[in-house]
Design a protein around this nucleic acid. Structure first.
Lengths: 131, 131
DNA sequence: TATAATAATGATAACAATTATTATTATTGT
DNA sequence: ACAATAATAATAATTGTTATCATTATTATA
């Protein structure tokens, strides 16, 4: 299997530029509508396609998103989680920590109001690691 | 407008029971297929409907999920974020913190392998707070 | 216990975000 | 210029979720 050789594309460059010039953590749709006036023949699919390639390449990351499915928890206490990126399982991850403190610390650095936080560790679970 | 009076429902109870007896942070679909053999006339819509009510009631929470749209970041460095739950904006949130340490601490409590974490604060941003 | 008010439901249509398909166009090495 | 193939537009398909609506179940009260 030969490596896929990457070719230049003006549209990919434009997407890169938008990402480099915004701090708004945009959606694919937002990037699309930002570029559309300037590049009228741009397709939304191109934006999605490029973003997902760029993510694989490590040029882009996405913010606390791991695949669009909502996962529920009968335990209403705020607590941290661990996601196994191999098998997809999600476990509670409650080694005792500054979990309560954290919001206080954050609040002291911030003009708005902090309500809570989510903390999710990613990696390989015990079972997947032995394989 | 009078308060909506909640009535008993066997199916809602069943969903509660499943949630109480699992630590797997299930999806709506998983809850549905778990209950389906036992309650053959259960509908997937009922599961979704009840879960979202229970979430409003604070009986259930969902794990690090805030609405299904992927948000991209051209900055590939791992860093924390703040989400305004009023206006939806997402900002970087990088007051200096044990961000690097954190994975190390987590690793020391864990048999698997920690790769990284996501830390997302929720609340009301400066602008929305003044209204 | 019958009844009336209305909450809960199943089935399914609608929807929104994303991914796959395919014929065409653009880039690049020769 | 040409051949190989990467990138694309347009759009169909897929997936997860929510809305609709006619029917059924629960509950308060007569």
């Amino acid at each position: 299997m030969s490596e896929k050789v990457r070719k230049f594309s003006r549209k990919r460059e434009a997407i890169r530029t938008v990402l480099a010039n915004t701090k708004s953590h945009p959606t694919a749709e937002w990037i699309f509508s930002t570029l559309k006036p300037e590049i009228p023949d741009l397709s939304l699919a191109t934006v999605y396609r490029n973003l997902s390639e760029m993510k694989e390449n490590g040029e882009v990351q996405s913010v606390a998103f791991w695949g669009g499915k909502e996962r529920f928890d009968g335990n209403v206490e705020k607590h941290s989680h661990f996601v196994c990126d191999k098998c997809g399982r999600i476990d509670d991850f409650d080694f005792i920590m500054h979990d309560k403190e954290l919001d206080g610390v954050a609040q002291s650095h911030f003009g708005g109001k902090i309500d809570f936080h989510t903390l999710v560790f990613h990696g390989t679970c015990c079972e997947c690691v032995n394989e």
